[in-house]
Design a protein around this nucleic acid. Structure first.
Lengths: 202, 202, 202, 202
DNA sequence: AATGAATGAGACTTCATTCAT
DNA sequence: AATGAATGAAGTCTCATTCAT
């Protein structure tokens, strides 16, 4: 279907405009390549992603890949930049709603048990990014900035140290929920968050 | 190297004649391939690992790879099995020393700030395994078993729910310490652990 | 199941006899290899057949292949020898029944429209043998002997020249029936045989 | 046809520069690969043919093979398409000359005893194609179309049923002549054709 | 007599990148 | 500015055969 669509497009473009060359104006081709890259990575991993697959998915000529991005690393960087931005934005929006610390507490629990856990795609992309960042320090600016935004969102409700602890706890609960074969218990999440949040004085 | 291995083999064979089914020349070739695979993965990632590279590193013929492992996935599975076992064992040993909850508390903090953080290799291998597990459920038995062993080690000192929370907190602190560009503060780790551990009653 | 069966067999042999070695008495191992080879060739062609596949199908150790047969060509030769013999025998039996030329005429038509056409396996093996014989003269002794037996069966009812013509006609009708996408018409077969058989004088 | 078109294209490209899409360096590379493939198949069979051998024979880089053909099956299909077309064309030309049924009768006999039999290469390629068609229905469109063209050539001289019978007889005589170790007798061929052709009334 | 272990060669295929246009 | 064609390198995997037992 992708191929057929491409054919149809180039043919109709050819007959209508009489230009011979494929699509002339494609203002967001770069953006489409990035979206396609994330799709491909979600499906086959950074390990399995290739110029060809991404180009095919984006319905873009293969030569276009190296035209827009010097090499694969640049594709990865741009893609994960967008991914981290998307998730961080969602995170921020998630914490726009609550107004009290108690509501924020609820929101944190919900974050782990409702939202993120649901999406296989985002779990995979997140761990792929972590792997990249673990290996290549230049990707840590992405993870670092992402964490900073997460904490800023929490900071509205909690003091600075609590924010850090809570952010780490969320991370750990999320990872374990995702990679453990036994389902997490919500009550435990509630309690853990409570301990971090209210444990201020011994 | 081949020569050395062969020598060793023939010697051990010599000492225990008629042992029965011992491999003829290279008794631990499988094991050496696994070690080599972990080295290669640590260096270039699952994405960059290949039969060729692993075989070269293990100093075995290329054909030996698919003789010992049906396909790449089997190599990965065996390698990460060993890796997870190694780390889990170390974790257990780490918690053999403390005898009181307070000492255990210290040990937890030390775990994050002293030991694991130090090793780039282990950070990388851990995230690679997480990525694999995120994508392929069959790898989750590894991560799941690993987590179970970690919790069992903690269980000597803490009740069941606290064990779970603490384990998740450790995970999160570890990940954030590794992927954040700003160094973690030890005091915050101490305090976070304290809140989880002593937060038993509101 | 093949694997399971093999396991079970070797285990029970081991525990009952305490011999350690795999099956001791396997008087018709050669024959089983040949049968397996024909199965494999029918499935994946001479092109796709390999020692490994045949050994696996025969439930025989790989090393057993080169023990019983010097090389692949010998396997092929023995296998097609058996195949040609099987088919020729069936052919002979087919012509044991008719007693008059008219009945033989019927039998010829039935041969093409009922029997051989039905079996995909035999069609495939036949063409594989023809291909082998076309390329390697040493396989022509097989095809030649097969044809001779076919003609001898027909010779009971027809004179020598007619026998040759009829045999060729049967071959051609069979091939065309098999490789044409439009089904053959029985009436035409009947008429063709009639012309060959009764066309003795102009 | 491919070859002709390509030639025309490269010539016109030379005479009318800027024609647009002419291939850059090797206008009929695809065609040359096909020819090489037929050579290789004729020599070592479909079983022995490989990308490497064909590429070497065509003097093109190995990577060029999968660039022009998605996989080996596509190479085979294109090659046998060309082969069947070549032979069918020759067949048609062979029957362009005779004008009477008697001359056609002569031509049929000559076909078997003079022309096709002579060429080991064509015998081999023919049986290889039959083998392919026997196994894979998608190759039967080739054999089927080939037969249809043969019959059309005969149809000029004989009625429809006779055409079918004659075509099958030719096939059978050809196969048997090729795969029998005893040479066929021309007189018998003459007589067989006569019986089919003149056998109209009993 | 028989076989499990082992391996180098080579199978098909995918790939990132170059190049001429 | 943009791209279709092309290719050498490397990918995974299968194979026939050898070898020590």
């Amino acid at each position: 279907m992708d191929a057929a669509a491409a054919d149809a497009a180039s043919q109709s473009a050819g007959s209508a405009v009489g230009h011979g060359r494929g699509r002339r104006f494609d203002p967001d081709r770069r953006g489409r390549i990035i979206d396609a890259a994330l799709d491909v990575i979600a499906e086959v991993g950074v390990a399995g992603a290739s110029h060809r697959k991404i180009a095919a998915r984006a319905d873009v000529p293969l030569g276009s890949m190296t035209y827009h991005f010097a090499d694969m690393d640049e594709v990865l960087r741009a893609s994960f930049e967008k991914f981290a931005d998307t998730i961080a934005t969602r995170y921020e929006e998630w914490f726009l709603e609550p107004t009290t610390a108690d509501e924020a507490h609820e929101a944190v629990v919900g974050l782990i048990h409702a939202d993120l856990l649901a999406s296989q795609r985002e779990l995979v992309l997140t761990t792929e990014l972590y792997t990249l960042a673990a290996r290549k320090p230049e990707f840590r600016s992405l993870t670092s900035a992402w964490m900073a935004r997460s904490r800023r969102a929490l900071r509205r409700f909690f003091d600075e140290p609590t924010t850090h602890m809570l952010d780490a706890l969320i991370e750990g609960l999320f990872i374990h929920a995702a990679l453990d074969t036994t389902a997490p218990e919500r009550a435990r999440t509630v309690e853990a968050v409570r301990r971090i949040v209210t444990g201020r004085v011994p």
